[in-house]
């Protein structure tokens, strides 16, 4: 990125006001999910567990950031007539790279996530940012904008995943090496922190507790995202549509 710094930019700090705004805007005022309502499909599909949500977020941050960077570098050379095809090629190339890297370094994780990786290509946030921002802005700012939107998307994804996994499965990070079993009835080798089948102690107070099966269904993510939008707009009143 250093090579794109020209005379004008040297005067400005590398991470100045504009970049800061590009980075923080997607976290609140212009969140891709709760404000722009983009990327809902994958937000419903992968958030039943936290671990896939985290990996999906990392992958989207990577693809979003670098596709913005490359699109912006090429923005003056891309013919208008085929710009969307070019954007898609850039995204698809990066996604293929992610896939090959996973196959090479960690095959079991690749097997577990192969479905979601393909979903990144169809994620409207990535292409939305290329079309709306990277085609008209300088590479470094486009890169920051891409990363910011990826982070804004990932934050919501993980928040939804945490709620769904705790109430739907009683665990956190299931499937990863740091799996935590929070609440549930012990069975065989499986032991929970709060054992609802216990005769005495903390767990015995929770004998009535059962996992909420609605939470594992995609519909639950819709409700949770809806509630998040509600909460966000109740304190951030400038988002409320007054028309």
């Amino acid at each position: 990125m250093a090579e794109v710094k020209n005379v004008e930019e040297v005067k400005e700090p590398l991470f100045g006001k504009v970049e800061k705004k590009l980075m923080t805007d997607p976290l609140n005022d212009n969140n891709p999910i709760t404000v722009q309502v983009l990327g809902i499909c994958s937000a419903l599909a992968v958030t039943s567990l936290v671990y896939p949500s985290v990996v999906m977020s990392i992958a989207v941050i990577f693809v979003c950031g670098f596709s913005s960077l490359f699109t912006s570098l090429l923005r003056n050379a891309i013919p208008k007539a085929v710009r969307m095809i070019v954007q898609l090629v850039i995204i698809a190339t990066l996604v293929t790279l992610v896939e090959m890297a996973l196959k090479y370094f960690n095959y079991p994780v690749y097997k577990q996530l192969s479905v979601y990786i393909g979903l990144i290509i169809t994620n409207c946030i990535v292409m939305g940012r290329l079309e709306a921002f990277a085609m008209a802005n300088k590479p470094w700012r486009s890169f920051v904008d891409g990363i910011g939107n990826g982070v804004g998307y990932g934050a919501i994804l993980i928040a939804v995943g945490v709620v769904r996994e705790i109430f739907g499965k009683g665990t956190l990070f299931a499937g990863s090496p740091i799996e935590m079993k929070l609440i549930g009835a012990n069975a065989g080798k499986v032991e929970y922190m709060i054992n609802t089948a216990a005769e005495s102690g903390l767990g015995s107070w929770f004998g009535w507790y059962a996992n909420n099966n609605l939470m594992v269904l995609p519909a639950a993510a819709m409700f949770i995202i809806g509630i998040m939008i509600w909460i966000q707009r109740s304190y951030n009143t400038k988002l409320v549509d007054v028309s």
């Binding site: 992968v46 039943s48 567990l49 097997k111 479905v115 769904r164 739907g168 499965k169 499937g175 594992v216």
Partner: peptide
């Protein structure tokens, strides 16, 4: 094993 069943279900 499976190719694309719903996580958690």
């Amino acid at each position: 094993d499976h190719k694309g069943e719903t996580p958690g279900l």
